[in-house]
Nucleic acid binder design. Structure first.
Lengths: 243, 243
DNA sequence: CGCATCGTTGACATAAATCAACGGGGGTGG
DNA sequence: CCACCCCCGTTGATTTATGTCAACGATGCG
């Protein structure tokens, strides 16, 4: 079923986590076969043998782990162009599910590793691939020790950057997905978005479609920790500024 | 200065983050040259070019990033045998510092990548190396969305496992280091340890030397989220059980 | 022995979780 | 096409874990 027409050099041109300006337009398909997954369909499960690596062709994917207390932590979202399934030794560390109907390209990991082991250049490409994933994960780790406001602002900017990078962000995922990605509750996500909207920083066209009206406010929030909602928010910092 | 007597096959036998039973005893030295670093000396800085990879020979290392608000997040501790400096693309993502006086072995990354690019087996070894680091980072990410009690319990068990795996843990790092690693404050670390001690779960021989008296309590705390301090702690769950 | 650093403890503030109720939009079936 | 329903999202009231501020104590080094 899997058609191994690719090679590692080709792989290197699409490092996991890279930024794509027009994710849905035609781009060379990296891996041989593609499979279609329905909304919420499992692509692979935690502890499944890590036989394949994957690339999103269309749609969106979430990778998650279930915690002992039943909570779900989403480690990453993958958008068209992104490679995933690297976060693994012999078995996967996370489950991966399609967020919406998605086409996923697939190739055997062994094929990649075998073909890679021929030239230093190919090894370097593989190295780039995984260090990109490491970078993404480190950034996410840092995110999880920031305030809820900062996490949501970061999320909006990240989604914008990784999709069209324009003023409007289209979110394929639910509030629960966002909450589990950011390590906060669905209520806090909702409240924070409302705060941003009341401050004129964003506009909610619909729950899944958000305009970034004052991108600079979101960026500033990241940089110096000042609230993006400035004189409207409820944070201590903000109240001090108001008085 | 650097002596490249190693090869990638040798590398594979000491994946980053592997568990070592007797970390301080002699083990084949992986990399050519070793350098000695004083307490708090910087091994490499964030955004430094990622020219080398490193292995702890003796001592201990912390890798950290400084957040915009001045806080410091420690991404990992490295103990004797651990490889580090992999968390990088062209430049390092973190700074690395010696926690105490440490001997660090060093090799040029290029040397490793060039030597690796000869056989598929070597590539597989390199793959193992970085996926180990990915695993460690994912576990750490999960840690950061748990309660303070769970974080501290996890830390104690992790340190025990990674050092002698016996009943007594010797901590090379300060409370501030632990706090920055776990994403909580130094006060919360201290209070949690005191709680554990009052519950008889641990005993503090000194601040840096801790006996794990009831390892099962710590493990249970991780597994089902029940407080390790059981009928003594102050958590809601615990109070419910008491009533 | 004195000092500085590190760690502990206490009182209080606050961000976010929890519990609960309500609203609204989109898809389905009549 | 309309209406109903169900899920998803929002909002409000309250609780709680952890942060913050402050003082004190211990430990080890010079």
């Amino acid at each position: 079923m899997l058609n191994s027409v690719t090679n590692a050099a080709a792989l290197s041109h699409f490092p996991s986590g890279a930024t794509f300006n027009s994710p849905h337009v035609g781009r060379p398909q990296l891996l041989g076969a593609t499979r279609c997954f329905a909304r919420n369909a499992e692509i692979f499960g935690e502890d499944d043998p890590a036989t394949y690596i994957y690339q999103v062709v269309s749609g969106a994917v979430r990778a998650h782990r279930i915690l002992h207390d039943g909570r779900r932590q989403i480690g990453a979202f993958y958008l068209p162009g992104d490679l995933f399934g690297l976060e693994s030794g012999d078995t996967h560390l996370s489950s991966a599910e399609a967020i919406c109907e998605s086409q996923i390209a697939v190739i055997k990991l062994n094929t990649v590793l075998n073909r890679t082991g021929t030239t230093p250049d190919n090894v370097r490409d593989l190295w780039t691939l995984v260090t990109e994933e490491l970078r993404r994960m480190q950034d996410h780790m840092i995110l999880l020790v920031r305030s809820a406001e900062e996490r949501v602002a970061h999320f909006l900017l990240e989604m914008s950057r990784r999709t069209n990078n324009l003023g409007t962000v289209n979110l394929p995922m639910s509030r629960q997905d966002i909450a589990d990605y950011l390590g906060i509750t669905i209520e806090t996500v909702s409240r924070t978005l409302t705060q941003f909207e009341q401050a004129g920083v964003i506009a909610l066209r619909s729950a899944r479609q958000i305009d970034l009206c004052k991108r600079s406010s979101l960026t500033r929030l990241m940089r110096d920790g000042r609230s993006a909602v400035d004189f409207i928010g409820v944070n201590k910092k903000v109240r001090e500024v108001m008085s």
